[in-house]
Structures are given as C-alpha cells and as structure tokens.
Design a protein around this nucleic acid. Structure first.
Lengths: 135, 135
DNA sequence: CAACCTATATAGTTTGTCTATACTTCGGGT
DNA sequence: ACCCGAAGTATAGACAAACTATATAGGTTG
C-alpha cells in the first residue's frame, strides 16, 4: 500500500527539519558515538568507527577530543595490547543524559502545542515508533 | 500529562538513529537548502542563509558549490542589482526528488515490516507528524 | 621465526563553517 | 543633485571534522 510511503516521507521530512535546527555544541557524530557507547558499553576504537560510519583515523581524532573533554576514556584490552577500548566516563554519562533530555524537550514542547486529537494520535503511535527505532 | 514527554523522547531517538545511517553525498545543509528552495521558489542569498541557520558568507560558498554542480543558479533581481536570487535548476529538482525518495524509502522499508496495527497507528498519526514538521 | 595481518596513530588534504572586512548598490536628508 | 549610512553579496583567513595514505606496534601462523 501507499500509506507507508506517506509515513516514510513524513518521518524523513521531520528528521531533516529536526537536524536543521540542531545545536552544535559537539558534532552529531560525537553525540552519536556517546550514545552508542551508552547502549553497548566499551568498544574498540575501530568498532566504534564502523558503528558510526566514519573511518578509523577520524574516530581516533574524535575520541582524542572527547577524552580531552573528559567524556570518554581510553582503556587497554588485557588480552590484546594493540587494542584501545573506548569507554564512557561518569561525566560522559551525565552529559549524554542532559543532551538527550534537551533534544527530547524540543519535541515535547512542540507536541504540547498540538491539538488534543493530534497528541492522542501520536501517543497511540508510540509503540510503532519504538518498534521503528529498534529495527 | 507525561505522554508528550514519552513521544518527544521517542521522536528524538528516532532522529538520532536516522542520522547515524545518513548518506553524505552532499552536506545536510546543502540538502536542506535545496529542499527549502523547492518549497519556496527562488530566494535571496541572505534569506536562504537565515532559513538554514548559517551565516551569509557560508551560504555564498555553499551556493557556489551547488552552482558548480548545476543544482542551482544565480539570478539577478531586476528591481535591486545588489541582490542575488538563488533558484533550483531542473537538474536540482531531479536530484532533490531522488534524494528525498532514497531517504524516505529507508523509513518506508522499515514501516512495511511493522505489524498491521503499528502501521495503522502511524497512518493515523500522519496529520500530527505533518503539523509537527510545520511548527 | 619470518612474514603477514590487525589495531591504532600520524600527516596532509578537503569541506563546511565562522568572523571580519571590502565592494556595490540603494535610499533618504540636506 | 549629492553624499552618507544601510543593505546585499563576496573575499580572506581561521578552525573543526571528515577523508586517504601511511607509519608503528603488536599478534598469528606456516
């Protein structure tokens, strides 16, 4: 059917619009890397680069920056001394939490201005949104 | 109520997830600028910069690049010779159409895999999503 | 154990953004 | 009619974040 196409376009447009107004405190990739580390726990530098879709040397630079800001730390892998494990620090966890809340709040504020009907429809679609995110 | 908070978080997470897998053929700002021009028609360079949230000199550079790729063209304003009007070319229109379709298709493919129930909920939330995007 | 493979780091380049400033053109006040 | 400040765009130079190519350190295997 064609309605999934319509929803796809609507979500894509929403994403583009949301990105346009984004805060540039740290790069999108940095934020996404922190988020990935939060989900998965410590990762090898190369694996993190792959997960974020950037080249390994780029991730080296990025991690160095995050490390300088105290958001992540480099650890050694006891089994393989070539490896650098990148791990969130407590500061990194806090930062991520705050940033996530700020991002969500922008949407929440917009949602609060919608009609009752629109709000109800979004709430009803919550399970679907969660399923989308997981796939 | 708290459900708008939940929806805000869900949408934010979805946006972050969507960005992670984004294509980098042209910059997000370039894509967004093309999209804006498509919605509004030709714009002054400064107005386009404001719409995209970047500084005017940045937009000058960006437009020069898009012009070199044949996606936009600079026109003169007959009423004010200081002004540069930036307009989509036919090639730009085509490019935008393809790009939009690719982006939306990623969502569409995911949506097609959801349950009937989830799909119906998303379709029901379509007006709400459109309203969100406009605000 | 020598050769090759893997994981990370470094060097140099490109792109997209910024601020500061220059150059044209417009419009208003004298 | 003219000048002067304002408005619109372009240029210059700096910085950040990405890339490719390559170097270095450590592991693996025939």
């Amino acid at each position: 059917m064609d309605s999934s196409q319509a929803v796809g376009e609507a979500l894509y447009s929403l994403v583009i619009a949301a990105i346009r107004g984004r805060a540039r405190e740290i790069s999108l990739t940095s934020a996404s890397a922190l988020s990935t580390l939060s989900r998965t726990g410590p990762l090898r530098l190369t694996d993190l680069a792959t997960a974020e879709g950037i080249a390994q040397p780029s991730m080296t630079t990025l991690v160095t920056g995050l490390e300088r800001n105290g958001l992540v730390e480099r650890r050694q892998d006891p089994n393989d001394r070539r490896v650098v494990l990148v791990a969130l620090t407590d500061v990194g966890h806090d930062y991520l939490r705050r940033r996530r809340k700020t991002g969500a709040d922008r949407f929440t504020a917009l949602i609060d201005q919608l009609s009752e009907e629109d709000q109800a429809a979004l709430v009803a679609a919550l399970p679907a949104l969660h399923h989308l995110e997981e796939s």
